[in-house]
Design a protein around this nucleic acid. Sequence first.
DNA 1: GAGCCGACTTGTGTTGACATGG
DNA 2: CCATGTCAACACAAGTCGGCTC
Length: 894
Amino acid sequence: MAVETSDKPNLPHDFEDDDDGPVIYKRYSSSKKNQSHSEVRKSSSHSHDGQSYRQISNAPSSSGQTSCLQKGNTVPSAKPSPVKPSVGISKASKSLVNTSSTKLPVANSKSPSLGDRQKMSVDIKGEPKTIEHHAKNFVEDSEDDEDNKPLSFRLKNSNHDNKVTSVIAKKSSEDSDDDVPLAKKLYRNSNLGTTSSNHDDSNQKKPISKIQKEQKNGSGMSNKLDRPSPLPAKRPLDNSNSLHPSVKKSKVLDPVASIKSKAVSVKHELKVEDDDDDDDIPISQRIKKSAMSGDKSSSMKKVLTKVTKVNKPGSKPFKKQIKKTVKKSGSGSEYSKSSKILPSSGDGQKKWTTLVHNGVIFPPPYQPHGVKMLYKGRPVDLTPEQEEVATMYAVMRDTEYMQKDKFKENFWNDWRKLLGRNHVIQNLKDCDFTPIYDWYQSEKDKKKQMTTEEKKALKEEKMKLEEKYMWAIVDGVKEKVGNFRVEPPGLFRGRGEHPKMGKLKKRIHPGDITINIAKDAPIPECPIPGERWKEIRHDNTVTWLAYWSDPINPKLFKYVFLAASSSLKGQSDKEKYEKARTLKDYIGNIRSAYTKDFTSKDITKQQIAVATYLIDKLALRAGNEKDDDEADTVGCCTLKVENVTREPPNKLKFNFLGKDSIKYENTVEVELPVYNAILKFQKDKKPGDDLFDKLDTSKLNAHLKELMPGLTAKVFRTFNASITLDVMLNKETKDGDVGEKIVVYQHANKQVAIICNHQRSVSKSHTAQMSKLTEKIDELQAVLKELKTDLDRARKGKPPSKSSDGKRKKNLSPEMLEKKISQTNAKIEKMQRDMKTKEDLKTVALGTSKINYLDPRITVAWCKRHEVPIEKIFNKSLLAKFCWAMDVDPDFRF
DNA sequence: GAGCCGACTTGTGTTGACATGG
DNA sequence: CCATGTCAACACAAGTCGGCTC
């Protein structure tokens, strides 16, 4: 099929997969820009405070984000350019040469020991001096620069010695803070203080109407946002123009031809097409050219002729324009499969021009095992359908769901429908699934026992089967598909107390699936003989390749999207961070606006103000309304009276279940007006009543949009997370080895995870692992003691004592013994640090914020500045996902 | 403006491959 | 070499939010 890649003779070298990774389409990086990067960096590489904003804004080129999008007109090779700052990994990274200051050093040293990390894992508060200095620098730049820090940060900085909150929050204070819920940890030291000082920036009154007008006139947010106040330049607001270079696309790969041809020809066509594109025009000129030609360049019109569906009319004022597509870009990342920048994700806007893919793959049909379960002690015959569902239940015996009545009840109801009223099995209580469970365990064991070769063969077979589904061709570029496997049937595993847990998630058939594909692309063959797709669509205003209705909740859909590494996803990711960065310029005004409204007579206004404050300060989620058939969780707007407890004089204790039924527990000091407002909102209400009864997310977001174009509640989370990382990294990174710097990063990452309440469940074996470590340490202590005794004896010329098993030990010199003692000591220390780190992070999930909230450019720029190999921070998939960020200027600040 | 639909992002848990250390 | 631990990849649940309809 079209996207097969198994054989690839005569491939142009730059499309040759030289790795087994998903790479098929390389990017190239322009090295020109890097020179300017290094120049910029020389002048400011040690200025990691507010001042660097100004420097960035003066940088000759915009922040270096373009080369990822540029065509490969400089280094026509798949190998990374020697001067290129962009980051490759694995092979590519090894070949990176540390040149100018923009380089991202290659991983060559080992990660810091956990012990080292622990050592660095100091209190977030840091030294007051540093903070003051830091703040001062911000002030130099702009009077509202405090606003650029997360609210929580500012609060903390204002008083770093407030443990009161933690004392209240912490019930079991026997040891480390690891038993304290995440949310508490960060804020235990927080205090009220600077908040109010940030709301008096009267000169920041922004001309909202003007902004909106300008937005209407087509200046897309991520392209240019009017600044609300005449602040000193912090960063070039239009630098994100470079994110969407309007390099024209002169020819689009013919999807029909491509899908009919073999992989070779696909790749070949891609190459040919590149060749007759405007590669010969320098990038800068091309960008300029298209930028000048307005939002509908001739090239764009050309592309638009291919559109299969006209854009929906009536776009909103803040709607982004259609952005021009670029076919190839400059990053040499091995994981950059695609390169062009696709149209932005504005709703109703064209997302692609051509889309070719092979549909989805279905799980294999059920293979009955014939193992009989018992009912009242007797074996029961089941039809394959009945057996299938019984097996789903049987294999969940070791899960927590089995303790839940709701799960069993729902399962029973659905299973019973399959059994029929008159079936021998009349209740679940008398069912014994043990035979099926045992069969399943033995199957698992068999699998485990397979030799490496057998496993490998099996894997290869699976790969062969799936290969063609793994890729899509979007506007002529091969992109990885995210989740091309249709979900197999199973029992619904809702989180928390989900009312539908245990219900049968029925098998999905082709007849349930709608395929989205270009009009002139061949319709994917239905993989199940005799069946057919539900529907074929040609909607290029959406990014999904296929969807089906969620069998548990038919109102919901399950989508098949492109993978995170695709440029379609990368583009919207970038826009997300740009929007969050924009908030930095508005946050001062927003804070003063809501502070003013804390005491508003208009109760809706007042609730909006307090809700916004909480979202800003605590990074709460918006909190949409939920149906009764969903788990009972809340966000900001849906907080109940009982979720917030007042603790005089001005503390609020939050306790609720948030997304995924993760507990949010946090006690925070708030401004008195907020405290009083909460008191008012709670008055005369029952515990289960809505705290913000005049508010919902659409009202809140509508209000936020008045303050900043495109602003919604979730932007605060991104902003809060990213600014925290940026501030902490720049405050805390000291000279030192790579290991120490990574510890700083992890520390910052952890704080972000705490702010966002990213928790993970403690691993089952955690306690066991800990006691094992303790044991080992004890053993070492014993060894140490013995060594010390022997040292004493050796010094006195006596032979060593007998070891515990009575054997005679070797006669060692005092020097040797001393050496052994110090080695053992070091070992013990390292293990103790390991233990502490382990305990420290047992409930904290660092990954979520990395994937979703931290602007990767902060990380990449920091890595460049501090010569930390990016691979130490980003794993393979993050590198692929964030390939668009790799060329960032080292001086980039969020 | 409420309610619903649709599309997309965010989130945790599980799985399985790989690394590590005895 | 094996047992154990770690981590990336995967699976899929659960959010957010825009837009449409009535």
